[in-house]
Design a protein around this nucleic acid. Structure first.
Length: 271
DNA sequence: ATTCTTGTTGCATC
DNA sequence: AGATGCAACAAGAA
């Protein structure tokens, strides 16, 4: 589930903890989400610290505490953040929980555990935060950087390239399909075949989809409009909301990919 | 019962 | 050396 906008949504779900002190920190030692942290050190640093603010970038979240403590959360495939109190019914996958002052609980639930927790303490910003590439909506995300990146991945299908976080932070499977569908590019088009005109279109559409997704999903998880591919892509038999013709679903670059064969034609967009 | 999955990584191969 | 492809991770859902 969690791509750019969903991550922003989940970041806010821990807002009830902002300004509160950590009373208790629990990380299930058997849970895979903790594979990158030293539990004892993290627990010791977090207990007594106050949650100052939270940040979201790409598919990553950071929760900043006093004493220079940073908690990182990546939701993986099935992770989610919840907030509640002692009355909340626990799930079998509450692998990480902060009990805050006032009895608020901040929980990281993740059945499949492809997600992860990161921890860092010191002066400044943790490396796993500062090395996140420039956001697609930032001025640093230029057509030039996209062009260089696509040239280097010239023989890979564009769908796979859009999923590479080192250049397209926050783009996941559904957003990549949404971008290609809106812009009219076939997912199997080779990255190296994108000329200046196509690059401009790709760049603009990436920005538009990110902005729209944050507007619709980042706020309150309202359902995306029927005019998006999003609502039609999940199961076989869906129709393209523009052409009304059947959509195709097929694995491209190892990921289920959905596109409109009428609007996204191989080899059509060159130059 | 079987197949699928909105993510990433590590390794094999090109 | 760098790019590309794919199994593996774990468990619910269809």
């Amino acid at each position: 589930m969690p791509e750019l906008a969903e991550v922003e949504y989940f970041r806010r779900r821990w807002n009830p903890g902002v300004g509160r002190k950590v009373k208790k920190a629990f990380l299930n030692p058997k849970a895979r989400i903790g594979r990158d942290v030293e539990i004892k050190a993290m627990t010791k640093a977090l207990v007594g610290a106050k949650l100052i603010e939270s940040l979201a970038a790409a598919k990553q979240m950071a929760f900043r505490f006093t004493h220079g403590a940073w908690l990182g959360v990546h939701l993986g495939m099935t992770g989610r953040l919840e907030a509640g109190d002692a009355a909340r019914e626990p799930t079998p996958y509450d692998h990480f929980k902060l009990t805050m002052s006032g009895g608020k609980e901040l929980i990281f639930v993740d059945p499949r555990q492809f997600g992860r927790v990161l921890f860092w303490q010191g002066v400044g910003v943790p490396p796993w935060w500062s090395k996140i590439p420039p956001a697609i909506l930032s001025p640093e995300f230029t057509i030039g950087t996209v062009e260089v990146f696509l040239r280097r991945r010239a023989r890979a299908p564009i769908k796979s390239v859009l999923l590479m976080q080192e250049r397209f932070p926050g783009i996941g499977n559904w957003m990549a399909d949404e971008v290609l569908w809106r812009a009219g590019f076939h997912p199997k088009a080779k990255a190296g075949d994108f000329g200046p005109k196509s690059l401009r279109k790709l760049h603009a559409t990436l920005r538009a989809v990110c902005a729209d997704a944050l507007k619709v999903i980042g706020k309150d998880w309202s359902d995306p409009p029927e005019s998006w591919l999003f609502n039609h892509r999940w199961k076989d038999g869906g129709n393209c909301p523009r052409s009304k013709q059947p959509l195709i679903r097929e694995v491209v670059g190892g990921r289920t990919t959905c596109w409109s064969p009428l609007r996204q034609v191989l080899g059509a967009e060159r130059r």
